[in-house]
Design a protein around this nucleic acid. Structure first.
Lengths: 93, 93
DNA sequence: TTCATAGTTCAGTAATATTCGAACTATGAA
DNA sequence: TTCATAGTTCGAATATTACTGAACTATGAA
């Protein structure tokens, strides 16, 4: 196991290092399906621009995927990235 | 699995969300034993106060333990905290 | 004592992140 | 067209983190 700190890992941990973003991420994970941004907003009661910013950060970190369909933008977790973090942390201990 | 975002998880992810700290953490993990601060400093070539600051953050997040013995302060990873993160992330996907 | 070593705390500055109103883009319906 | 809905981008204020030289504490050796 290589156990090397890479910039990508830092970005992923950064994305999870904020309560609102962690809540967004877990809400998506619990849902087990893609959700439109508006449904996340209704759950977390955060202003639109703030939510958009957090979703963008999660997306750039590779933790969620986004897809536009008609008037909605659907977000979903990307399990591969999560697995990579699990693999990394499991290699530690 | 509860999959609830708690402040403690945020703190742990924050601690890992920085390249130097991730390097410190992995260096300790690879060592597989406690190391004095000076040995970490020799490896990472970071100024003393900066290293001290990062170690303090990792310690407050529960990711490492510290112990003074004579003139040295020994740091080691706390596997329980890492396991908790793994449990959390595994519950996602 | 005095000195050297190991590490931390202080304090000021620089850099990054967060927040969210206002303005914008995109899509579909009337 | 015109309007409403869904969401993003901009911009500027605020807040938080990061960095590190200087000064400090703690321990052991001479």
């Amino acid at each position: 196991m290589d156990l090397q700190a890479r910039e990508g890992h830092v970005e992923a941990f950064k994305a999870l290092a904020h309560l609102t973003r962690l809540q967004i991420f877990f809400f998506l994970a619990r849902a087990g399906r893609e959700l439109p941004a508006g449904e996340i907003q209704a759950e977390l009661e955060v202003p639109g621009p703030t939510l958009s910013h957090h979703l963008d950060l999660l997306r750039r970190a590779g933790l969620v995927a986004s897809r536009r369909e008609e008037r909605f933008v659907y977000y979903s977790v990307r399990p591969e990235t999560v697995s990579e973090l699990v693999r990394l942390l499991t290699a530690c201990c």
